[in-house]
Design a protein around this nucleic acid. Structure first.
Lengths: 120, 120
DNA sequence: TGGATATATATGGATAAGCAGATATATGAT
DNA sequence: ATCATATATCTGCTTATCCATATATATCCA
């Protein structure tokens, strides 16, 4: 499955920055543009899980979780592994969490800066 | 200006992970969910620029650039500085570029992995 | 003040992305 | 084969996002 997504990028031979950024957006950044998907990534970073475990843990409907997992899977951010009836999902690359944690630090400092501006 | 955005987060005292992630998405990740905005951030990381310089450099209309700059400014990712008629924008926190570069590395490896799967 | 330049915003319309609810597929057990 | 469980997908519908065009504001200079 997902065979059609493999012949998209063609190994970026003569890639300008603009082209690479557009692919970064299309493949990864747009996948991070939803809070449920970010929560899924953090949850899978703690431990690989079945769909139902994510449904329970994130208190979100099963179709919604599956739809988000499909997006993350198509973009290579998570990997699926069927074991009997269950499908276990796991994070493909922990550096996604590194990047998100960096952004959380940016956010913390940004909020602190704003708070200082208010109190001055 | 932009006064209303300062009283949004209230210093996240009793913040659950879910709440923090939702704010991360609302403030930062959703701002990264557009290729033009990512290009603006990379451009400003190289050198602070006026709106018109960005318009020329990114070959995008002035209203579009201004609209994207407003979003980035409201979320604290860029800082504006008026000097006469011109407004010079600059990156607020270089770690955004660090995070984006990490995601680019993730993308590169993901594409390489897919290429290997195709050729096997 | 009036004009020129730089930047910001408002409006309308197209496209995309989200969810809920229903349904389909896949696997395992009896 | 039939049923139960787990997961995936489809169908409307609503909302959000983006752009182009037009217009407004801000600053400088004459």
């Amino acid at each position: 499955m997902d065979k059609q997504i493999y012949d998209r990028g063609s190994a970026m031979e003569t890639t300008t920055l603009s082209q690479e950024i557009r692919q970064l957006h299309a493949d990864i950044c747009s996948a991070l543009a939803d809070p449920t998907r970010i929560l899924i990534l953090y949850s899978l970073a703690e431990s690989p899980s079945s769909v139902n475990e994510l449904v329970t843990h994130l208190e979100t409907s099963q179709p919604t979780i599956s739809r988000h997992l499909k997006i993350l899977r198509e973009r290579g951010l998570v990997s699926a592994n069927r074991q009997g009836q269950m499908v276990t999902y796991s994070l493909t690359d922990v550096r996604i969490i590194d990047a998100l944690d960096t952004l959380r630090a940016v956010l913390r400092d940004s909020l602190a800066r704003r708070a200082n501006l208010v109190n001055s």
